[in-house]
Design a protein around this nucleic acid. Structure first.
Length: 290
RNA sequence: GGCCCGGUAGCUCAGUUGGUAGAGCAACGGACUGAAAAUCCGUGUGUCGCCGGUUCAAUCCCGGCCUGGGCCA
């Protein structure tokens, strides 16, 4: 059985997962897109090694920030670990707020091999022009993707040119069952309280030295790394570059985290059969009764 | 005390030569298959400071009051 602990950021998922793993003799598998990076520490609010209380955990801090990570790689890495744990009959606690990663790990998402393609000519075009081209090669995707959503339009073109098939040919999995036995849990929260906690957490990150962390990462790796699109780092980098003030950076980190939490709520609400719980004990009680 | 400027959405502010009002941000709702902490879409939530007057009709004009700021005493 896979126990998924997900839901919005800052609701105490980590401690619930650790507690649950302890109760069940399980192991934790990360499902947070930014906890995979070795060098991101303060800004990601990642649990430290000692927080795990000896519980075995996987897919944390195993990717270098200079690498371009992808959901396809996550899926492959996560499935390997999941299948190994299932084979050894060890309960799996899949922990993280990256909904699409959970979706890719547990559902029948398929990522085909891709041959590298050069899209630089397309990147010169404006949104409307790009969308027109997409309409010519994949009208169904053009219907589904808003012209302003440049990233998705480009991605649909990339699929067409690198996989030789259309994005719209990939089956949409809505209301389908996961390929593994899984239950989905989120920690109950009050939204106003959650927003307040986010604000406090960001101030705590600043006290813990987020600015210095961002500075040293920037000095060592430059500002182009995919990993630096993480909330907390992207705003600090703008501040370090002198584009915004420190106060602006802080309030943007707070606002972006709030918006992110809201998107997470929307995602899990519609994508997973969520059960909202208060503590790990609720899950354990639930297992005993059913 | 006198003069001047302001009071409109949660915030910052537009605006209506009189016909009950709109931007940005915030908030809320949503989409989601290789950057997902990403990217994108949708929704205005309002005693237009208060009380009177003029008017068919006042957030707008007039008077008074309350209130914030500035200048002069």
């Amino acid at each position: 059985m896979i126990y998924v602990i997900t839901g919005p950021t800052n609701t105490g998922k980590d401690s619930v997962a650790i507690e649950l793993a302890k109760c069940l003799g399980g192991e934790i598998v990360n499902a947070d897109a930014f906890h995979v990076y070795k060098q991101l520490k303060i800004g990601t609010n990642k649990p430290r090694d000692e927080d795990f209380l000896g519980i075995k955990h996987h897919l944390f801090e195993y990717v270098d920030v200079s690498e371009d990570y992808s959901i396809a790689r996550y899926q492959s890495d996560a499935r390997q670990i999941i299948e190994d744990l299932i084979a050894r009959n060890i309960p799996i606690i899949l922990l993280g707020g990256s909904g699409l990663y959970i979706k890719a790990a547990l559902y029948d998402y398929r990522f085909k091999d891709e041959t590298p393609v050069d899209l630089s000519e397309y990147e010169k075009l404006n949104n409307a022009e790009l969308h027109t081209i997409l309409r010519k090669v994949d009208a169904a995707s053009a219907d589904r993707i808003h012209p302003h959503n440049r990233r998705r339009v480009l991605r649909a073109l990339q699929i067409y040119f690198s996989q030789g098939n259309k994005k719209s040919d990939i089956p949409v999995l809505k209301d389908e069952a996961p390929i593994y036995e899984a239950q989905f849990f989120g920690v109950e929260f009050d939204r106003a309280d959650l927003y307040l906690r986010i604000e406090k957490r960001v101030h705590r990150m600043m006290e813990e030295g987020l600015e210095d962390e961002a500075k040293s990462l920037l000095a060592r790796y430059g500002d182009k790394q995919q990993a630096f699109s993480a909330i907390g780092y992207k705003e600090m980098i703008e501040y370090i570059h002198g584009l915004i003030s420190k106060e602006e950076a802080i309030s943007q980190i707070i606002a972006n985290t709030r918006h992110y939490a809201k998107r997470q709520i929307t995602f899990v609400r519609h994508q997973f059969p969520m059960q909202w719980i208060k503590s790990a004990a609720d899950i354990v009680a639930n297992i005993k009764h059913g």
